[in-house]
Design a protein around this nucleic acid. Structure first.
Lengths: 334, 334
DNA sequence: GTGAAAGCGCTAACAA
DNA sequence: TTGTTAGCGCTTTCAC
């Protein structure tokens, strides 16, 4: 293995071009007031030596790494990976890089936050359900998704979870559902997604329909087994709203195994609007979050914070109901 | 916005502890031969000041950033996001960070490779179908997935694509399929995934079954429309192997719309073994890649290269056939 | 317009 | 065992 340690530095370029390092630096940074000939010489030298500046060395002076971190619970989950894609796009547009921090079920928040302090990332976009605020001491620019922080002043971007829950209820009822249920995964920490359930439930109760809930801790074992029991015990449920699309797919699978017809016997609405659910066999009816816009807003706000501008602490983006084929205007017998 | 630029440095710690920066550095790096009292003093100072070392400043001396880059075509795709998750896990274990470079359809390879040179990442894991080798001048440690490079000596990790293609053919035939087809997305550059089709086709032809292919350029418009036409024109196809799981889901959807029963009328085998396809409604029969192991190997090899060890240039991991419910031993009339 | 030099936060070689 | 100091590659005064 040839250890080709030494890379081309600014000094090399300076020598090659017969100028000082200061001048090279000025060229790199496109400063004005450089004589045409000098510019040419330096550019030529850069080209012949195939020189690239070391951004971290620069960062040491400028106190900027041009790196943004994205914290997600698990990158394999389609909602998060789609979100990551959009964040990456935005970050890329601004010539920054994206550090991916996927918690992956293990307890990495603390570790990652430390790492990020070490590496002086310029800012963090986080979508996490852990009580991260305890760790968040550093005053680093931070934007959270779907998670309000009560104590600290932290910018938050989310979809209108309340409207989403309400809309789901409205649509199911309008389509003739008589017994509604919510299926979700509980989380210990408070977060905005809980509003989905609350708004849904409120609407249903206001309109005096029977209502059932299945809302276990996500980490609980035998989740699917318990879910199946729940569905068996509530055979007359004919309209289900799930906390997200993946849960909806689970529910569909279980109901199919029971021989239920969807949407004839049971109608289902998910939440998120992930690609997978829209493109593939069952076109899931869902409350779609404006994922791309959320990413765009989050990154925009983050950079505003980095640049010292004032920002809205709370940004809420509108949801839309997308009708797939798990809902339908049907005639109910009863 | 309070600009709290100045962060705690080693010098501050040194002063606080009443020692020199050299000593602090030694403590940070857990060198041996430090007097107990000094150690205590320094550790105390670090704690009271809440000091964290700047890894990039360190990197300037050590020529290491402890950062690995992962290049994928698009992070939203479940195969890549699952792979990313596993790579992230491995990188995290080694206390390194992961820079995510998702090409996202646009033409970013060149840009990213430049960025990575700028930022001196310690190594790159890439799963890309572009002719990246042209850009790859820097001699940076590099491991590619599913992509052999002819000219350059580059380490490659892949699943046994040939065995996979063959296995798919074998399983379909064993289950009574009489007319086989391959459905895939073409890519301009040569890559290992092509072997899937070739091995599949060879096996089918050897056994003298009728065979049809649909293998358009992925970027082609109206892909699904054309795919549908293909399936309409070949109504007697009863066994399909697709280049990956997502294509299989597309095929299923189209066939369902045509009123075909799966697996009774048509059997389908995908490739990859993504979570989504396994967990959800249709349990897709598929040739599963050992994704986690591939990630583990790739990262292991990468770090071996970084550490200057000799490595295998070609690592091929075994695939396994997983039977979902899109295949079945059925009695065929004809 | 451009060069010289100080210094960003750290490590490592050399002294003491 | 610890302190001192020279850089790592860059930016940025301050002179010229």
């Amino acid at each position: 293995m040839s250890e080709q340690k030494k890379s081309i530095t600014m000094k090399d370029v300076a020598i090659e071009a017969g100028v000082s390092v200061g001048t090279v630096s000025r060229v790199i940074n496109k400063e004005s007031g450089i004589k045409e000939v000098t510019l040419k010489k330096v550019e030529q030298a850069i080209k012949t030596l195939n020189y690239v500046p070391d951004l971290y060395a620069r960062g040491m002076k400028r106190n900027r790494t041009e790196t943004i971190a994205l914290i997600v619970p698990s990158i394999w989950h389609p909602f998060f990976s789609e979100f990551a894609m959009h964040v990456e796009n935005e970050v890329y547009k601004r010539q920054n890089k994206l550090l991916l921090c996927s918690i992956n079920g293990t307890d990495r928040e603390q570790d990652y936050l430390d790492m990020l302090r070490h590496n002086k990332v310029d800012g963090i976009v986080a979508i996490t359900y852990s009580p991260i605020e305890n760790y968040l001491t550093s005053g680093i620019p931070f934007v959270s998704i779907d998670r309000m922080y009560s104590n600290i002043e932290i910018a938050c971007v989310s979809s209108d979870n309340e409207a989403g829950g309400r809309e789901a209820a409205k649509q199911l009822i309008r389509r003739g559902c008589k017994h509604l249920a919510f299926v979700g995964g509980h989380n210990t920490t408070i977060n905005e997604t809980k509003r989905r359930r609350i708004a849904f439930e409120n609407y249903v109760r206001e309109h005096q329909y029977p209502f059932s809930v299945f809302d276990l801790d996500e980490t609980e074992e035998d989740y699917n087994v318990k879910l199946e029991k729940f569905l068996s015990k509530n055979p007359d449920v004919d309209g289900i709203f799930t906390i997200n699309d993946l849960f909806a797919l689970d529910v569909i699978k279980i109901l199919q195994n029971k021989g239920k017809k969807i949407p004839e016997d049971v109608q289902i609405i998910g939440y998120d609007g992930i690609k997978m659910a829209g493109d593939k066999d069952y076109l899931l009816s869902t409350i779609a979050q404006p994922l791309e816009e959320m990413a765009r807003e989050a990154v925009r706000i983050l950079f505003d914070i980095i640049d010292g501008k004032a920002v809205n602490m709370q940004t809420m983006l509108p949801i839309t109901f997308i009708e797939g084929n798990t809902t339908k205007f049907v005639d109910r017998k009863r």
